[in-house]
Design a protein around this nucleic acid. Structure first.
Length: 324
DNA sequence: AAAAAATTCAACCGCGGCTCA
DNA sequence: CTGAGCCGCGGTTGAATTTTT
């Protein structure tokens, strides 16, 4: 299919770093008119740039909700854990990190985390020690791949929801020149017709309920008070956290990752509520840090109110009293 | 103090997917 | 159904900055 974006071929258009004057022009235009059609925007805004360049500048730098500066420990952990499932799906990872852009996360991964992994002898792609790569059994590899597939699907579905709800919000914020494409997709999202990705969440939930041995008693009524109608999934359960272990034993939460490898192998009881294949990945990569954090998987109920869906780096520990 | 090497990160490029006529 | 146009994603580049020699 022939295709020409006109960006790279048009030598009249300016490239390279943006000047403060150009930033000002772009900002002023978007503040007044919104960011409709990126291709036609530069001309309207009086910029000698291609639309792609404008979009990039806006998304990665000028957007008011972009957080800049050093990544926190929790943000780094979130990136590592999500990368263990998703690989280089930067935009999906970014959707789970409020105010961070895919470009920034990608840069951070390539310049900081990846390097540290390599130094530690951990393969940044598989999140496993390089020496262990050949020792995985076929069965384990297949199981991990299967489960990771489901988890990836779930995370991507959530990322889509976050993106869609953001679009919806920006549409409602009265930007008159938003493109027909955006307005249309937002309408579709807001209508009573369920988005297809909601079904992915539903499907994932039912499968996970089986795989993670969550009893249906724990699904209904909702087991948790800290997020309505949700199943808490603790990523990175720590052996020192008695609360998390107890909660996991009772089936009130599901644990993924964080336990030492030998514990997984030796403690049969724990294997009932853990997922060793996933733990394996996390254990290696998270040996970079010795702290835990938590996130929750939303059930179908909360999906109906999808503006609430996003995975944040919760920095509070689960307490016994939080779960009923 | 200067040069070289390493690092960082904003920006570019090309491709694939989606929408629409 | 098909093809054109647009957007977004992920990989890559290279200028600017920092660190090391």
């Amino acid at each position: 299919m022939a295709r020409s974006t006109g960006c790279s071929k048009n030598t009249l258009l300016k490239k390279g770093p943006w000047t403060p004057d150009e930033d000002q022009k772009l900002l002023a235009y978007i503040e007044e008119h919104g960011f409709g059609n990126w291709r036609t925007l530069p001309e309207k805004a009086g910029l000698q740039r291609c639309g792609k360049s404008c979009r990039l500048r806006w998304n990665n730098y000028l957007r008011p909700d972009v957080k800049r500066g050093k990544f926190s420990l929790h943000e780094e952990q979130t990136i590592i854990r999500l990368h263990a499932f998703l690989g280089n799906r930067w935009s999906t990872i970014a959707a789970h990190l409020p105010k961070r852009t895919d470009n920034e996360i990608k840069n951070y991964w390539n310049t900081h985390i990846k390097k540290r992994f390599t130094k530690m002898g951990i393969d940044p792609t598989t999140h496993k020690p390089k020496s262990n790569l050949l020792s995985s059994t076929g069965r384990n590899t297949r199981t991990l791949s299967h489960m990771a597939q489901w988890e990836r699907a779930r995370l991507e579905a959530e990322a889509r929801l976050v993106r869609e709800s953001k679009k919806l919000v920006s549409t409602q914020n009265n930007k008159p020149s938003l493109s027909a494409r955006v307005v249309k997709s937002s309408k579709a999202t807001a209508s009573s017709t369920r988005s297809p990705c909601l079904d992915v969440l539903k499907a994932w939930q039912s499968v996970v309920a089986g795989m993670f041995a969550i009893s249906t008693n724990n699904l209904e009524p909702p087991p948790s008070t800290f997020v309505n109608n949700s199943i808490p999934i603790v990523v990175g359960c720590h052996e020192s956290s008695a609360n998390e272990l107890d909660l996991a034993r009772t089936g009130s939460v599901t644990c993924i990752g964080g336990f030492a490898q030998d514990e997984l192998m030796l403690d049969d009881d724990r294997s009932n509520y853990q997922v060793p294949e996933l733990n394996e990945r996390f254990d290696y990569s998270m040996s970079l840090h010795d702290t835990t954090y938590h996130w929750t998987a939303a059930t179908g109920n909360i999906v109906e109110d999808f503006s609430d869906i996003s995975v944040h780096d919760f920095d509070y520990p689960i307490q016994q009293g939080d779960i009923h």
